[in-house]
Design a protein around this nucleic acid. Structure first.
Length: 757
DNA sequence: ACTACGAGACTTTTT
DNA sequence: GTCTCGTAGT
């Protein structure tokens, strides 16, 4: 829908694509060179603004593609941006620095690996690899992994790195923490020795590289005059410091985010970065994108009312030109199975009416909930797809194959060697391994170098010799081969194929291994050596086999774990956690398991910001829906092998009652509901009009005052708030307002001076 | 070197 | 309830 407001500015006359933007979007896109914070609500055209901003800067000659850095959190978002950008501009996107934080840091480290103190072909550890590495450290330090669970040590390391802290900088006053710091330090030493880098290290190393090399820093600062950040509310401290360092004096940061959709505090996201950005970069104007192009009015009003219960907010309210649409359907089920059956029935009915199955999503708070849903869907024969779980490059057989390849690229990678030295089994047992490890430790060599000495005698020695022979043959054989052939060779000669062929039940794994060859072929096809010129140049100094293509492919495998499930083409109902649904939208959405303790999750109550983060999560869930929204909960549910009896989630009570409609035929449900959401008589909701944000007319009792649920209001004493409930007529009319600062209050309209805001 | 059994967890997760 | 992981036994 084109904006038909004021006279088109000069820029929109010369740049045709700007005409499709609303005034706020256009203001953001055409901002002069200054740092800015764009608060972009759900469905407000965030990605569009981001890509158009880049296109605008290039089109108007303010920047060259070379001078732009745009950073996202996921590969998907980065790809999306590049695709949209190349649709807007006929430019070669290859030279542009558009990617994930980790991808860009990797790129920088590859180019300056020497200054960063890394080998040219450093390997990247994913979570699994890192955990394995931590376990080895604990073993080498003789640390009891009962008292120091590897997972906790891993988290300790990552948390600190994400704060920008090295082991020596961590403050440790108690013996337990001191021990953890020791592990941290030893882990980093081990990684350095083996030439491997974990995810957090990519960022920290890149940050330190820029800190320690002023010329380099200046180079990048001068190059990147425009830095654009997506999902800014999800950045952690280190990421923000990295951006700050890269921005320098003259560059402008364009940060897009939504504090109401911050759902990753648990993994280190620091919302405070928004305030810090405003201060550090003297942001003059915060632009809010509040017009929503996705959802019907009722859905938006529900989301607005819910999120108004949060105290920690920048304050932002979505509105739409669209009609109110249908009421939100609420279903109370006696059991989790009944809940699942209800969802199956409704989805089937919707599908019969013509809604594509893939346009519907069932969302839940925790993965464990998918089981019951899957069971019901399977019985009904309704195709479905579950997101989450193992990704392609995380599968056991793929990791084994990659470990062989990694050992070829970087023979000092002990982790990879250990993974495959006896897989498939080739008679190298624990005993032999111990000898080898002792030898390596005493000589200060990597396991591979120790193995190659041929110093071990007897049966152990011959086993090792055979392995060394195998790897050397694979390595030498790889010299003249293209990437997919190298992979094929490795699969065949390592015995991996033979191993999985033995087992009838392992057929999937064989298929995956073949898929790996395909993936390598596709990658080799798209590979552009130019982007890795620095890497190619530095190859001569390495002892590894395989060319830059292999190294790049391995990086790709670590940085981009691949699809969750192989067959994404089929029409199927989408099942996923609320977290996984962020950024997606569906015609119809089912939010299931709305019970106290589940959603909001009980474990979240321990944390300071816990409940508010859960509420933001619910906000994200609601705003995924375009046209239809179902909310359901079960009064009893099997959890941890025990029957649990649940109470309806407080989030249901926080939604304006007149937007909801009870559905389903369970006789007793009304009695079971909290009084606030008793079944509504008559049809709900009015409409939402442009300009007057989410204006809803409660239809059951026509109001004689200008206020309605969901509306923003201003009170002389209590400040800003949102109406969450209305009742009475004339002089009896009262409204319940959730004030941002003053909490929830009932106000009699006759006395309270309430202004629409 | 492989299988079997028991103990313990079990919120959300991208890179 | 069910999955993973580690150890003990064959």
């Amino acid at each position: 829908m084109a904006y038909n407001g004021d006279e088109p500015s000069l820029s929109s006359m010369t740049i045709p694509f700007l005409s499709g933007l609303n005034p706020e979007q256009r203001e953001a896109v055409t901002l002069p060179r200054q740092s800015a914070l764009i608060l972009a609500g759900a469905g407000s055209g965030k990605t569009r603004v981001l890509t158009m901003r880049i296109a605008y800067l290039i089109q108007t000659g303010q920047a060259s593609p070379h001078g732009i850095l745009a950073v996202t959190f996921t590969n998907k978002a980065a790809k999306e941006m590049l695709v949209r950008l190349s649709a807007l501009l006929p430019i070669n996107t290859r030279g542009m620095w558009v990617g994930t934080f980790h991808g860009l840091c990797n790129r920088m480290l590859r180019a300056h690996h020497r200054d960063a103190g890394l080998p040219a072909l450093f390997q990247i550890l994913d979570n699994q690899d890192q955990l394995a590495a931590v376990k080895r450290v604990l073993k080498s330090l003789n640390i009891d992994d009962e008292k120091y669970p590897p997972r906790q040590v891993q988290q300790f390391i990552n948390r600190n790195k994400e704060q920008g802290l090295r082991a020596e900088k961590v403050e440790a006053y108690d013996p337990h923490t001191q021990r953890l710091v020791e592990c941290f330090a030893a882990y980093d030493v081990q990684c350095g020795r083996e030439g491997v880098v974990d995810f957090a290290e990519l960022l920290l190393r890149s940050y330190e590289l820029l800190c320690a090399h002023p010329e380099l820093r200046k180079h990048y600062q001068q190059r990147f005059q425009y830095l654009l950040v997506d999902e800014f509310q999800d950045t952690n401290r280190l990421q923000y410091q990295w951006l700050k360092l890269l921005a320098g004096e003259s560059s402008a940061i364009f940060a897009v985010g939504d504090d109401d959709q911050s759902i990753y505090a648990f993994r280190g996201a620091h919302t405070g970065n928004m305030a810090e950005l405003e201060r550090d970069f003297s942001v003059e104007k915060v632009i809010k994108l509040e017009r929503n192009y996705r959802s019907h009015g009722n859905i938006l009003n529900a989301a607005n009312a819910l999120i108004s219960y949060n105290q920690q907010r920048k304050g932002k309210n979505l509105w739409t030109d669209d009609s109110a649409g249908e009421p939100i359907r609420v279903f109370a089920a006696p059991t989790d199975h009944a809940e699942a059956e209800f969802i199956v029935e409704e989805a089937t009915a919707l599908a019969r009416e013509g809604t594509g199955l893939s346009g519907m999503a069932v969302l839940y708070r925790s993965n464990a909930q998918s089981r019951v849903l899957e069971h019901a869907l399977f019985r009904a024969g309704l195709p479905y797809r579950v997101y989450g779980g193992l990704r392609f490059f995380e599968r056991q057989e793929i990791k084994h194959a990659l470990a062989y390849l990694r050992l070829l690229a970087n023979p000092d990678d002990d982790g990879s060697l250990l993974r495959i030295i006896n897989f498939p089994a080739r008679g190298i047992g624990a005993r032999t391994l111990e000898q080898l490890q002792d030898l390596a430790a005493s000589q200060g060599l990597s396991l591979w170098r120790a193995a190659r000495l041929g110093a071990l005698g007897g049966k152990a020695g011959s086993g090792i010799k055979a392995f060394v022979q195998l790897i050397e043959t694979l390595g030498d054989g790889s010299r003249d081969l293209a990437l997919p052939e190298i992979v094929e060779q490795v699969l065949e000669h390592s015995g991996l194929l033979a191993h999985y062929r033995q087992d009838k039940q392992e057929e999937d794994r064989l298929e995956n291994l073949n898929e790996l060859v395909n993936a390598a072929a596709v990658y080799a096809e798209e590979y552009d050596g130019g982007a890795d010129a620095e890497l190619a140049a530095s190859l001569a100094e390495t002892s590894g086999w395989g060319g830059p293509v292999l190294a790049a492919f391995l990086t790709h495998a670590s940085l981009e774990a691949g699809e969750h499930q192989a067959d994404g083409s089929q029409e199927a109902l989408q099942l996923m956690t609320v977290h996984a649904a962020k950024g997606l939208e569906f015609h119809a959405v089912f939010i299931s398991g709305l019970e106290e303790g589940l959603f909001p999750h009980e474990n979240s109550m321990m944390e300071a910001d816990g409940l508010e983060e859960e509420r933001r999560l619910m906000y994200v869930a609601i705003t995924r829906a375009r046209r239809r929204l179902y909310l359901s909960y079960a009064q009893s549910r099997m959890l941890h092998g025990q029957m649990r009896y649940g109470v309806a989630s407080r989030f249901l009570r926080e939604l304006p009652e007149n937007l909801l409609k009870q559905v389903g035929g369970w006789d007793d449900y009304a009695a079971a509901l909290p009084p606030q959401i008793a079944p509504t008589r008559g049809q709900a909701p009015g409409h939402t009009t442009r300009g007057q944000a989410f204006r809803v007319q409660p239809s059951s009792h026509a109001s004689d005052h200008p206020f309605s649920i969901g509306q923003n209001v201003l009170h002389a004493k209590f400040g800003n708030g949102v109406i969450v409930n209305c009742e009475g007529h004339g002089s009896d009319a009262r409204v319940q307002v959730n004030f941002r600062d003053a909490g929830i209050k009932w106000l009699a309209l006759e006395y309270a001076k309430l202004l629409p805001a």
